[in-house]
Design a protein around this nucleic acid. Structure first.
Lengths: 224, 224
DNA sequence: CCGGAACGTGGAAGTTATTTGACCGTTACA
DNA sequence: TGTAACGGTCAAATAACTTCCACGTTCCGG
């Protein structure tokens, strides 16, 4: 499933884990030293790194720090020592998880998935509120699966509202955020734009579910 | 530092953790039951949830699943049982980490930070490549600090290229991704658009640094 | 209940972006 | 070295977007 870089100096543990992870559907590359691992990271970015702490030469925590300097790719530290201090030091070095050996392959697999899932959902370009999905990567908005075409200004206004869910944003704020320029401050611009967005995303524009008017103040986005 | 929602039914453990986390600079809200926690999540989104597994009423794993249905906010499961199966089930339920009690407060703190750090670095609204910064929140592009105005199509094309750094994307792919419809394959749409982007972001458009032409295949975005 | 303020709504006019085709330079390959 | 395929560039036509205005509706205090 994922391109895993495994770094473990003990040959039996290494081949054991490699086999188990491969069996679980991952594609694994294994090395015995930190230097090799760093070269591998530089050359071909793996999806995730599983790093033994006790390594000959550069130790795992240091490898972790150096990888962090290169990239923000996920790292799981693996160690025989479950000392509290070790855990804290490891995590502070930039690791995403810290697993104590011996570890059941399926547990390691679950933790790998958890880290990757988090990365996936966080770096996902999608934000969704009920039926409304905003894909910030493709700059597309869909409502119950059907694509809704929003113009640039509309999209920027919607994104600005969505970025502060539940909060009321006044017209001045929205004009600054969406229209940048020192405009003639015709605050009706905002109204007109909100209306157009509502016409596109609200099932019943007269009774908005997403963008609510707060009379005298501005507009508030709140999920239905 | 962070708005933590702590759910733990044992009063002594609850107040102990609350105190420790508060002392570490977090702002903590604590509840004893899953129902209360779910209400809290709905009403005021916490930054992270720390959830005991053994709860009266709805158990922690189920609360975790329900929170996941609402939101993708980070969840750390806390439990007295360190059984392998429990860990796997908990992580599969959508938890980001699984910590076995008793836990040293500084270890828990380190794990909280690790999860939040991961979220932070991944959900950043900005992507930068050398002098080129793409702000996906404001939908703005800046080159060495100066704003560059890209039209919607230009921005979408750039984002599509940037999403696959180093990879060559052919015209058909780009037409699909950026223009949706199945356009006539032989068109200068992509070329013309790439040209306009280059005119705006490349110091010397004739010798592109960001968007490279791969003759016979398409275009590749690669950081300078 | 009335009057005014705030907001919703539709449309016309002006502005900007996109598409298209033609033409030219470059490159790959025989 | 010739030539066909490929990509770059430009300008004009078309399409889309934004703005602004005018009028209708709702809401709220008096």
């Amino acid at each position: 499933m994922a391109g895993i870089l495994l770094v473990e100096d003990d040959p039996s543990v290494r081949t054991g884990l490699e086999l188990a992870l491969t069996r679980q559907g991952h594609s694994v590359t294994a090395y015995a030293t930190g230097e090799e691992a760093l070269d591998h990271v530089r050359a071909r970015r793996p999806e995730i790194v599983i790093l033994d702490v006790m390594l000959p030469g550069i130790d795992g925590v240091e490898v972790c720090r150096r990888i962090r300097r290169l990239d923000s790719l996920p790292i799981i530290l693996l160690t025989a020592r479950g000392d509290d201090l070790d855990v804290v030091v490891g995590l502070e070095a930039g690791a995403d998880d810290y697993v104590v050996k011996p570890v059941e392959p399926r547990v390691l697999d679950a933790r790998i998935r958890a880290v990757l899932r988090r990365l996936e959902s966080a770096s996902s370009d999608r934000i969704s509120f009920g039926d409304l999905v905003i894909d910030r990567g493709a700059l597309k908005v869909t409502l119950s699966g059907r694509e809704v075409h929003l113009t640039p200004t509309e999209l920027r206004l919607l994104l600005e509202l969505v970025r502060h869910p539940g909060q009321v944003l006044n017209r001045r704020h929205l004009l600054r955020a969406v229209w940048d320029h020192n405009h003639v401050a015709d605050s009706r611009l905002v109204d007109a734009c909100v209306q157009r967005i509502r016409a596109k995303i609200e099932p019943v524009p007269a009774e908005p579910v997403y963008i609510h008017t707060v009379r005298g103040f501005g507009y508030r986005f709140s999920p239905p």
